[in-house]
Amino acid sequence: MTIWLVGDGIVGRRLARLLSACDVRQHDPRREPTPIARPGDVAVLAHPVEHAPLAHGFALRGASVVTVGDDFDEAAALLELAPDFESTGATLVVGAAMSPGLSGLLARHLAQQLAVVDEIHVALHGTAGPHCARTYHRSLSRRSHGWHDDEWVDYLGGSGRELCWFPEPVGARDCYRADFADPLLMHVAFPEAHRISARRSARRRDRFTARLPMLSAPHAEGRIGALRVEVRGANAAGSRECLIVGVAELVGTATAATAAAFTVMALAGELPSGAVVAGARDIDTDAVLRHVESFGVRLQEFTGVPQGA
């Protein structure tokens, strides 16, 4: 079985390294629009342009697909491809990045400790490669979607400031609403949650220039990024609980580790057919997280405000 890797940016190169034990081949849709995959193969889409048309091409060949992206509309388009993958017994993993992706896995890990999940709040800091930085820049100026009291609400991107504490060395950052796919995919995985929000860290300059073209070319890769997932609900005794986990890692590295974990599980046939989102009940979340850890990402939980003896 072959892994078809589409995209050779920061994430693509790291994926190739993490999956070097497998038969990995690069696929360039600009040179070869129709993939030559076979049933049982897995394609990892880590390129900047639209994923849905290429994913559909792989579905027609009976191959599974793991997509790395955070665009809200793109995620919605990919979810509509679920019947194409179900009909061939293949798997489509929608959003196997740091957020969405690792965020959903961590949310499910926390939800397993609760009897009732009411709220899920995600905060993300940092970017991977240049395309990720451009997407981040745009996301602060677009309408950002949030699930609030069981209905979708459109907020102004860059609004809703909240001081979020990430694992060290990132620490405290002001985070704002932004346009990315995490609320949509979290809602698919956690339909019972009444409130789902996703925020990204930003400086005053980022918010001020969000509606302008990028004033300078983005860096080749961002610095250490971070992810923070907070799940609120009630335990079996009915008392309120607020559980928090996080990651401090290069965004490209954490994204590649998450995509590689889903790829390994798809190759092994350990994922259900059809569309799969991180954090869904029907996947073995802890097994995916163990793969993520084995690829070098350190997961951390917040155990309360630091206190002396």
Binding site: E301, F302, T303
Partner: peptide, 17 residues
């Protein structure tokens, strides 16, 4: 003394499902 409780700690995953 430095903090003895709280803060960020490595997450321990269960061994199996």
């Amino acid at each position: 003394t430095p903090p003895q409780h709280g803060g960020w700690r490595p997450l321990e995953l269960p061994d199996r499902r």
